[in-house]
Design a protein around this nucleic acid. Structure first.
Length: 260
DNA sequence: TAGGCCATCTGGTCCT
DNA sequence: AGGACCAGATGGCCTA
C-alpha cells in the first residue's frame, strides 16, 4: 500500500516536529481519502449507509464491522503504532543527547543503530573507567584492605593499566569512527588501509563501521579513524591524545566487549 | 544509480 | 476485546 502520507515528514525524525498524534490527523487527510476512494465503489454498491453501533453498547465482532468501521479501526491502530514509534524515536533522541558525540546543525544525527552501538560502547568504557578509578583509589589509600574490598566488588574484572586515560582508547576509536576520517587528520597518525572505507566527515557512520558489529569482531578491530571535524566533548578526554599504542588495557577492554 | 536509513502500514502474537 | 509489541513490506529521501 502506498504510504505517501508519511513521506511528508519522513525526514524529520524528531518526533517533536511531526504533526500531532491525535487520531491520525495528518494520515487521514491524505491516506484516508485514498483509502475511501478505493473502497467507495464497493461500499456504495454492496451496502447502504451502515449504522455505527457505537451508541448501542453492544460490541461487534470484527466480522460484523462495516467497512467504514474497519477503516476507523485501522486508522486507530495505525495512529497508535505511529505514536509508539514516535515515542521510541523520542527516547532515541534522548539517548543521542547524552552520548559523547558532537551535536549541532552541521553534524548529521547518529543513525539508530549507530546510537545503540555507541551507547553500548560508552557504557562499557564507563564501566571500565569506574573499575580503574576504584583501583586508583585503592592504590592511593594503599593497604591490602582496599584491594580486598575491590576484589570482592568485582572479581571478574582483570587488573587494568595504571592510568585511566589509557582505557578510554577504545571509545576514542569509536568516536573517531563515528565522526569519520579525513586525510589531514590522519597525517599525523599511523595510516591504515581501512581508512579508505571511512565515511565522509559529516556523514554518519554505518553500523558496521563502529567496530561493534557482531560479537566476534572486536572493539578494536577498526584502526584509527580521525577527522578534522571531530569536536572535543566536555568532560571527555581528547581522543587525539589517546591515539597512541595501547598497552595491556587493550586485551582487557577487548575481552570486555567480546563477552557481551 | 545503488545502498543506507527512515517512516509508515499491516497482520500476527502476546498480554491484561 | 483492546492495546502493546514485533517484524515484514513498501516507498521516499539522501549520499557516495
Amino acid at each position: 500500500m502506498d504510504s505517501d502520507a508519511g513521506s511528508t515528514c519522513s525526514r524529520s525524525s524528531s518526533p517533536d516536529l511531526v504533526v500531532d498524534d491525535s487520531a491520525g490527523s495528518f494520515f487521514s487527510n491524505k491516506m484516508f481519502q485514498t483509502y475511501c476512494q478505493e473502497n467507495r465503489a464497493n461500499s456504495e454498491a454492496g451496502q447502504g449507509r451502515t449504522e455505527c453501533c457505537s451508541g448501542s453498547g453492544k460490541a461487534k465482532t470484527r466480522s460484523e464491522l462495516s467497512k467504514e468501521e474497519m477503516q476507523d479501526l485501522r486508522l486507530k491502530v495505525n495512529s497508535r503504532e505511529r505514536k509508539r514509534m514516535h515515542d521510541l524515536n523520542q527516547a532515541m533522541d534522548g539517548l543521542r543527547e547524552v552520548m559523547p558525540y558532537a551535536h549541532g546543525p552541521s553534524v548529521r544525527k547518529l543513525s539508530k543503530i549507530s546510537t545503540l552501538l555507541l551507547a553500548r560502547n560508552y557504557i562499557l568504557m564507563l564501566s571500565s573507567s569506574l573499575e580503574e578509578m576504584k583501583k586508583l583509589v585503592g592504590d592511593v589509600y594503599g593497604g591490602s584492605a582496599a584491594v580486598q574490598g575491590r576484589t570482592g566488588a568485582h572479581p571478574s574484572i582483570t587488573p587494568a593499566a595504571p592510568t585511566t586515560h589509557l582505557s578510554l582508547h577504545p571509545l576514542a576509536q569509536s568516536l573517531h569512527s563515528l565522526v569519520g576520517s579525513t586525510p589531514s587528520a590522519l597525517q599525523h597518525h599511523a595510516p591504515s588501509p581501512a581508512s579508505a572505507a571511512a565515511p565522509a566527515p559529516h556523514s554518519p557512520p554505518s553500523a558496521s563501521f563502529l567496530g561493534f558489529h557482531p560479537p566476534v569482531q572486536g572493539l578494536l578491530k577498526d584502526p584509527l579513524h580521525l577527522t578534522s571535524s571531530y569536536r572535543h566533548f566536555p568532560g571527555m578526554p581528547c581522543p587525539c591524545s589517546l591515539c597512541q599504542p595501547l598497552p595491556t588495557t587493550t586485551s582487557t577492554l577487548h575481552s570486555l566487549s567480546m563477552n557481551k
